[in-house]
């Protein structure tokens, strides 16, 4: 089965000469559909850079990035834009909803950008909002919503229209612990529907929602927890048997 996201020996260097900064060094990562991976590490370890490269927002200096089996390196800007609106959803710490558009219009925007008629797209957006318990907030503007509601709208926008990869950069960073937990629960639910998720977080408690945790330091993957064994593992014979 094709991984939803695969990074092969990805490195990223900013600047040159004396101002050169190595943000990522030979990072390898694979995220299967339905899996939720948390990325942790101190500030400046390259977590956000990993996410932006995975989401095709910037290029890796070396290495290869594959989304749904497609290599990003050969794609034009327009192809990447189309990949983002069809396959990749983003959730940011500061929500980044577009002022001037209502909640449902924000959610429907990626579909409309992809050529879906406004009425169909907004109906899909409303459906996504209903799944996140925001059916009565669809006509409100972002500045009329609370922080938790805004982040839920951002998650709805990230998953609307059959997205396969959900990337979240500190999604609970601007929320209290209750809303933070709620956001992680929603992301977990999205992954149960087959979406692959990558969450950057500083919070170990929130990272515990993930199937796997990857630790970054100075741009390198220094550790990662093993994926938990599912119940099906009990049916397989152990190597000693």
């Amino acid at each position: 089965m094709t991984a939803a996201l695969e990074l092969r020996s990805v490195s990223k260097v900013y600047g040159d000469g004396p101002t050169e900064v190595q943000a990522l060094r030979e990072v390898n990562l694979s995220v299967e559909a339905g899996a939720l991976v948390a990325v942790m590490g101190p500030s400046g370890s390259g977590k956000s850079t990993l996410l932006t490269i995975a989401g095709s927002l910037e290029d890796a200096t070396t290495g290869e990035v594959l989304v749904g089996g497609l290599t990003l390196s050969g794609m034009s800007r327009n192809d990447r834009a189309r990949l983002r609106r069809r396959a990749i959803g983003y959730v940011f710490q500061d929500f980044n909803l577009l002022a001037g558009l209502t909640a449902v219009e924000n959610v429907a925007l990626p579909l409309e950008l992809d050529g879906v008629a406004a009425r169909t797209a907004q109906a899909a957006g409303m459906e996504a909002l209903e799944q996140l318990g925001l059916s009565d907030q669809g006509s409100r503007f972002p500045d009329q919503l609370s922080g938790g509601e805004r982040q839920r709208v951002a998650i709805a926008r990230a998953v609307v229209g059959d997205r396969r990869l959900l990337l979240a950069d500190e999604p609970s960073g601007a929320l209290d612990s209750v809303n933070g937990e709620a956001v992680m629960r929603l992301m977990r639910a999205a992954c149960r529907r087959g979406v692959a998720g990558v969450v950057v977080t500083h919070d170990a408690q929130l990272a515990s929602w993930a199937d796997r945790v990857v630790f970054l330091r100075d741009g390198r993957v220094v550790d990662q927890t093993a994926p938990p064994l599912g119940p099906e593992s009990l049916l397989e014979p152990s190597p000693s048997q």
């Binding site: 327009n78 192809d79 609106r85 219009e105 409309e112 950008l113």
Partner: peptide, 20 residues
């Protein structure tokens, strides 16, 4: 399977952007 074309969303996309 993903197929990435070069479409830019056509009239619905332009309408959405103009509305915004």
């Amino acid at each position: 399977e993903l197929e990435v074309g070069t479409g830019d969303g056509g009239a619905p996309a332009r309408r959405a952007i103009t509305r915004w």
